[in-house]
Amino acid sequence: MFTVTICSISPLVLPWLIYIMIPVLEAQEVKVTGYLGDDVTLPCQAITRPEDIIVHIQWELEQPDGKKISIMYSYGQFEVLVVESFLKERVEIEEQSLIIRDVEMRDAGTYICRISAFPSGSFEGTTNLQVKAGVANVMVTSNTTDMLEYSTVRLSCSSSRSFLSFLWLNGSSEITESDRVQLTDGGSTLTIVSVTRYDQGPFRCQVSNPVSNGTSGPVNLSINYGPDNINLTISPSQEHYEEGSNITLTCSADSTPDAQYTWFLNGDLLSDTGPELRLMNIQESKSWNYSCQAFNSRTQRSINSQPAAISVLKRLSDGLTIIPGAMLILPRMIAAGVFVTMLVTTYSIIIRIRRKALVRHRVCTGEKNPQNKFLFFLFLNSTILSHISCFQFP
């Protein structure tokens, strides 16, 4: 006859019993590199079977001087105990791995993990942590980002690490010293003298040390310049305009910020503003001189365009328009009480008629020929009065 005695064992004692009773499995050794200020994960992965129950995990640190520091104990699902040490506020356990936040140089050493699993046994592994001062927190600051062209700008690069070297980039191009570019303070300070509109960036600073490297975010400069290269255009573009035409004048200039535009007529300021001036259904028959002015409120500079002449002509009858030019009087052209005066330019012919008459004109071959010769026909009531054979004009 057998007597069975059932006793209660504390969950804090059970792991130690398992660790003593079950052989320790083969150790695992891992090497990990951590960077100053970053987080690092130290693995401790046991080769267990699906039916195993992990009842105990222990982490401790063996420092380079041989001193051992207990870090934490995990009793399966029952409790996690973090031991008082310089790591206490920065460690946590995730499954079997140990996570160290905000790594410090003194965190370096050999970390030992012990896992007790039932029924497989106990596992012990070591992880060697090497801490390096990698590049971090690279930042570029500027004494100003909004400036006038031809002023001076100073950019400074910083990082929370030491033993650094610096490389400056404008876009993807490396910046080197020149007459306008100075690199000082070990390369951490970039000074550009007499900045131009082409020095807007983006600027970046690349920092490196023997361990790692890092690059800052982009910094763009706002260069205020101009106005320069003012241009006044007329649409449609032609030598003369008939009464009733619509004309658009456009003024443009290179400027940052955008220029403000004002308009002038024969030298007198108009109330119109903006880059476009629209002349609708023009009626008065005369010549006008329009010009524009571009003004930059940031640079306090202005520039005036060359005047553009607009000649407005009055239509006399279908197909006939008065165009200014040299005058040729033909005294022989007097018939039926009609007196004709011809106004001639190199490209255009105008006939002014006194009394009622039907007047038409043609060109020798329908267009101007290479010798600048023209043929004129004069009609009265569809009857030819006279003609001039291909008259030549200079």
Rank of each mutant, 00 (worst) to 15 (best):
D107S: 13
Q293I: 13
S235W: 04
M327C: 02
L25D: 03
L183Y: 07
L167G: 00
K31S: 14
F123N: 00
V140E: 08
R161E: 15
L343I: 05
I99G: 01
R298M: 12
R90N: 08
T5F: 00
W168V: 10
I20D: 12
I334M: 07
E51D: 08
F377G: 03
G109M: 11
S297V: 09
G201S: 02
F376P: 01
N289W: 09
V91D: 02
F339Q: 12
G134Q: 08
Y225E: 04
A133I: 05
W263G: 01
E92K: 10
P370S: 12
I9Y: 04
T256K: 03
S302Y: 14
M21N: 05
N170Q: 15
E367Q: 04
V344H: 00
L328R: 09
V338N: 06
S317E: 15
G267T: 05
S235E: 09
S160I: 13
L98M: 07
F339G: 04
R301H: 06
L167M: 06
E62R: 07
S10R: 10
C205R: 00
T365A: 10
G217R: 09
V211K: 05
G134S: 08
I53G: 03
A136D: 11
N231R: 14
I100R: 02
L87Q: 04
L42S: 03
E174Y: 07
M1Y: 09
I234Q: 11
L320W: 12
C157A: 11
D185S: 15
S302P: 06
A46C: 04
S158L: 01
T33R: 01
M327I: 09
C251D: 02
L12M: 13
N224P: 00
I388F: 13
L148C: 04
N224C: 08
A108K: 07
L380E: 07
L385R: 13
T41F: 00
S159V: 08
I384C: 01
E26N: 06
F203A: 05
I303K: 14
L42M: 07
Q238K: 14
D65M: 01
T126V: 12
K31H: 14
Q238W: 08
I349A: 09
Y225M: 04
Q206L: 03
Y198F: 15
F377V: 11
V135H: 05
Y19K: 12
I54Q: 02
V91E: 01
P23D: 10
Q28R: 05
I54F: 00
E276W: 03
R352E: 03
V135G: 05
S172V: 07
D272I: 03
K88C: 06
S173L: 01
L36Q: 13
C292G: 12
L265Y: 04
L190I: 10
P307F: 07
E84S: 11
C44H: 03
T152W: 08
R49T: 00
S302Q: 15
N170S: 14
V338W: 00
L313P: 01
A108R: 10
D199N: 12
A326D: 14
F377T: 13
T126A: 15
Q182T: 15
I223T: 08
M1D: 11
L378V: 11
A108N: 05
Q293L: 12
F264S: 11
L385E: 05
S389V: 08
E174H: 06
I353W: 10
L375P: 00
D102W: 06
Y261L: 03
I100H: 03
